[in-house]
Design a protein around this nucleic acid. Sequence first.
DNA 1: ACCGCCACCCAAAGCGCTTTGGAAATGATT
DNA 2: AATCATTTCCAAAGCGCTTTGGGTGGCGGT
Lengths: 345, 345
Amino acid sequence: MNLRELAQNLGLSQTTVSRALNGYPEVNEATRARVVQAAEQHNYRPNTRAKGLATGRAMAIGHVIPMSKQHEMVNPVFGDFIAGAGETYSRNGYDMVLSLVEDGQEEKTYRDLRGKGAVDGLIVHGPKSGDARIAMLDDLGVPFVVHGRASAVTTPYAWLDVNNRKAFRRATDFLLDLGHRRIALINGLEELDFASRRRAGYEEALTARDLPLTPAYMRSEEMTERYGYDSVCDLLDSDAAPTAFLVSSMITAIGVRRAIEERGLRMGRDISVITHDDALSYFKNGEDAPIFTATCSSVREAGRQAAQMLLERIAKPHLPPPNRLLEAQLVVGGSTGPAPTSRTD
Amino acid sequence: MNLRELAQNLGLSQTTVSRALNGYPEVNEATRARVVQAAEQHNYRPNTRAKGLATGRAMAIGHVIPMSKQHEMVNPVFGDFIAGAGETYSRNGYDMVLSLVEDGQEEKTYRDLRGKGAVDGLIVHGPKSGDARIAMLDDLGVPFVVHGRASAVTTPYAWLDVNNRKAFRRATDFLLDLGHRRIALINGLEELDFASRRRAGYEEALTARDLPLTPAYMRSEEMTERYGYDSVCDLLDSDAAPTAFLVSSMITAIGVRRAIEERGLRMGRDISVITHDDALSYFKNGEDAPIFTATCSSVREAGRQAAQMLLERIAKPHLPPPNRLLEAQLVVGGSTGPAPTSRTD
DNA sequence: ACCGCCACCCAAAGCGCTTTGGAAATGATT
DNA sequence: AATCATTTCCAAAGCGCTTTGGGTGGCGGT
């Protein structure tokens, strides 16, 4: 069923039917009701392509998800982020088109998506520090919102980020307050902006107390379970083993715990762990008594808000690009406790 | 840059340019080269909407991801499945459009997506036993492929599934062979077809050895970490506690392990655990020495193949709907061992 | 009785592409 | 030199919608 048929069916012109359905005022409420009812009855849905052609708007948002070629890995937070964004889109009549692309190939995909006219706006995932995509999208003239930031980019652009630096600063301070002095950072890939900010927070806390930065305590890789396990094994077997670990992802923290417990140690007593927790739905960190002390921030909520920002940006492109900084909560769980050495003081 | 401009630019008609770009034979190779080069130089990309309108094909596939309202949870396997499917799509010039929808609302979304002409085909996720969507899509006339099966649906339809029954039959047999007699099943929601098949495999194995089915040993819920933990706590504290657990998801297995180790028990010695492992990229079950004994099947590969099947189905709709049954591997890891009681025999 | 003004509706153009049904030019055949 | 098949290209229609720029009829005001 298309517009013409529907119009013929009703004995009206396409114009009138179109206007009736799109809520234009110049149509009698009685006819509008008649039209709406007929449309419903015939299960009429305007063809997106035709509508898009006519209006010039695609009513779709593109998400380009980077995927590590190395590990064939897609960061699990995307699932929840997408879920949040999807909510916003469907409430506003937008579709979501998704591309999974190998690291570094994203630019071409953005170009294509826009060039084809497949999307009205884009969400940029996983920004690197001096991410070239931002400049590119800017002079491509497509509305976009970055999930995260690109520290080295100085031109204004729309972003939504968690205050990663502050979160890790606080987490580190928390461990320091507990008497820990040898604190390891099991970070994500530091070419990614969020990871470098977390590191900055960590270093800032140490430096503020005149503590040295120990390169051996800092690791940076893709956040798999295995990586957490291996790192901790390594570090605990070294001399001057850390007494505390700061971990960048829940998944990795699972591996960290595994390594700790395999050694007969206990989290919170022998070794302290703080992890960042993106509040992945299947991984709720225990509602009542969290297993892990964690810096918490809902990535789903981030998705919702980023999508909202993007839609507003599309509607009002002349406004200056909005920014939003979400604060992470530091929630105390069972994985932290006073440093073992300080107990004996 | 659109076709007309490009054609004017070249002093050719739109027809010729279009044909040149789409590889039609009736155009001189010299002109074709000229056209292709100009297109490249001007960064020309045919407008999807216009193309779609003209051809009637959307060059897009819809994925409707069910999302539990209850836990706001989206199953983590979707990430990897989507990644696999996405590979296939992008290789074939298709886009992927994604909708996340609350449980049970999927039908409307399928209808919309098709009615709007936004997609040429659909992937059905998370089929229930007598899933109504299949009949609906059938008489809607949309090509689709189901990831999984719907046992109660008797009409032929295209699906790709893992042999869940057999996988869990084998896993249960494996535990039985090790002397376990009290084996608990920590299953996913059994309204979902895959879960009911897993249960069938489990029951089949027990029944084949004339062992009773103990309802208290069978659990069925959404596969969160917490669920695994709670279930095991519960069961281990009961009298006649199980000596082995069969778990439906890696995530849940993590919770199972947590509960076991928290009690000072050790997996593989005191308690045996077998989990299903979808080979999620960030959760590689240890390449060399797997932590968990597991029934393994790559959901990413499933995505790749399901997508391929769908594209073929779209190309040749007259062929009978294809089916594909993937076998899971039973990979032995460190989480299984002889039953404690049988040791004392 | 005439004018003007709404309220309501319509015909037709246009969005950017594909595709049908030729036409013009070229070369081979008689 | 005339004929005919190829090759190479083109004009125009059409995909399903929105939107511009009117029309028509009914009403109140003069």
